[in-house]
């Protein structure tokens, strides 16, 4: 079994391709995808799993969002330190995603890292964000990923890699994603966990 990219969007949420187009392109790349289209994503066939991406502005809004019906696994877009702590402190959340988007911190703090290790909430490395960034913003992202990897080795939480794809153009195959992760300092076991085992655990947690 190969790369499971659990952070992708179709036209039913913020993407620009149909769910079938995303799934067919993923098959050509030899990977599987999970669409984060929320309640509108129900019923879209051909994908490995479905989930919801929550984009709360703060920890209070996150609590309110978690009370609603969120089909499948739940991903939470990272933001302030308080929001990140609230997200990794709740076992309903599968992963904290999009670190470094919208000028937010590209790395998690040691407190968030320790909490994530305790609750089993994963932290995402967004390869799509890395590919679309340039210059200093990419340097900031790389620094954040390296800091998060150091914290993972210290505290033992799970890092997952995903593309945050909004179209088939953003999807990447296993070999390509693994090459980028290795260049960032991941060893072989960490690459396997980030691309295969970690995402599967998040997807299965959401189904349970």
């Amino acid at each position: 079994m190969g790369f499971l990219d659990i952070h992708t969007h179709s036209i039913r949420s913020s993407g620009t391709d149909s769910p079938l187009r995303m799934a067919a392109h993923a098959r050509r790349l030899g990977i599987e995808i999970g669409l984060c289209d929320g309640p509108r994503g129900d019923g879209a066939g051909d994908v490995a799993c479905h989930g919801t991406e929550l984009r709360p502005s703060g920890s209070r809004e996150l609590k309110r969002e978690l009370m609603k019906r969120n089909p499948g696994f739940i991903l939470v877009r990272a933001g302030s330190e308080a929001l990140n702590r609230a997200a990794v402190g709740d076992k309903r959340v599968g992963a904290l995603v999009d670190l470094g988007r919208n000028r937010t911190d590209a790395a998690i703090s040691p407190v968030v890292a320790r909490k994530a290790a305790e609750t089993g909430v994963a932290v995402e490395v967004n390869l799509g964000l890395l590919a679309s960034s340039r210059g200093f913003s990419r340097i900031r992202l790389i620094r954040g990923i390296k800091q998060t990897l150091e914290l993972k080795r210290k505290f033992g939480f799970t890092i997952i890699a995903a593309t945050g794809a909004q179209s088939h153009l953003d999807l990447r195959g296993w070999d390509t994603a693994a090459a980028i992760l290795r260049a960032l300092g991941f060893d072989d076991a960490e690459v396997d966990e980030a691309l295969r085992d970690g995402p599967r655990a998040v997807a299965e947690g959401g189904q349970g």
């Binding site: 179209s167 088939h168 153009l169 195959g173 980028i180």
Partner: peptide, 23 residues
């Protein structure tokens, strides 16, 4: 080869247009 794969995977835009490269 690994470095080349990485470089291909990091191309997200070509000439200002959104693009992706598949091996």
């Amino acid at each position: 080869l690994e470095v080349v794969r990485g470089a291909l995977g990091l191309v997200g835009r070509i000439g200002g247009r959104r693009a992706g490269i598949g091996v």
